[in-house]
Design a protein around this nucleic acid. Structure first.
Lengths: 156, 156
DNA sequence: TCAGTTACTATGAATTTAGTAGTAAGTCAC
DNA sequence: GTGACTTACTACTAAATTCATAGTAACTGA
């Protein structure tokens, strides 16, 4: 399963995950590894530069280059020049990248419930000051996902 | 970054992801790879047996064994004997495993918005028949995650 | 000029993953 | 009761990825 890159080539995922009808599989073709998710997390926390990510994640620079390129290529990040001399680029979230935040919060919510305890980073609503308690609901019924029966259809 | 197992030993993740204060990182220590996520997806779709997963995912049996063991060890799946002769086990979701569904839906929702098009698998509410449209909201404010400013705190 | 910064690339070793084949313990159809 | 088949794996090797460290390019600032 190679979710990434060799050289100047775009991601080649296993079994063409990105061509499958399942949208979960398609998404995982892009961000289905821990590094990519953690980069997205850090990008949401405001990091933009290569060295910021590298130090935060203690990731090998080769890996970081590959992941940043892939995420940029896939439209979750955007390269932006912030200095011409020396030439320096930073990576900022695109709209698609910002839309990824709910996924991170859903993962975090699961973690809080099932891997909580000890020292934990928490998030608060800046205005109300209440801790954020993420729930994924179906906009149609308003019910939390998993509380009602679901029917699957392989449609167009 | 080795998220998995060697031999009879539990996952040893990189830099002890599971000991970090960030709950996202902790969760990713367990399910931060595409195979694990896809196994969880298939488990939610009703698959329970080794060969069902293997055929559905076209995963190498060695990988599948490792992933199923890790997910079982981590409490997302549970091994259950369904035949004594011959001895046969199946893997069923635990409560923690079922709680993972919102994550999958959040990922799917992202995919629908940013990787939609072509033939796509969709989900409907079994009762109302409406297509499920997952949104992750903050239970406190009721606002979708990402629409309001957030404050981070590294508390206990 | 010399140390320091920043964003990388080069390289080789260690580790993981993939893919195929094989095994163990049966069942089922004659 | 023999042979074909099923199911859940393990063995093994080759291929690919990842890690870690070192090095480079293009500057800045003292």
């Amino acid at each position: 399963m190679n979710l990434v890159v060799s050289h100047y080539q775009k991601d080649i995922d296993m079994k063409n995950l990105s061509d499958q009808p399942c949208l979960i599989a398609r998404s995982l073709a892009l961000v289905g590894d821990a590094w990519s998710m953690l980069i997205m997390r850090d990008a949401h926390a405001g990091l933009t530069r290569f060295d910021e990510f590298r130090k935060s994640l203690k990731i090998a620079p080769t890996m970081l280059t590959a992941r940043l390129s892939a995420l940029t290529e896939d439209g979750l990040l955007e390269k932006r020049r912030y200095s011409d001399r020396p030439p320096r680029d930073e990576y900022v979230l695109t709209e698609a990248g910002r839309d990824f935040l709910p996924v991170l919060f859903a993962i975090g919510a699961w973690g809080r419930k099932h891997r909580g305890g000890g020292e934990v980073t928490r998030f608060f609503d800046a205005e109300t000051g209440t801790e954020i308690d993420p729930v994924t609901i179906d906009r149609g019924t308003g019910a939390p996902v998993g509380t009602r029966a679901i029917r699957i259809a392989a449609a167009e």
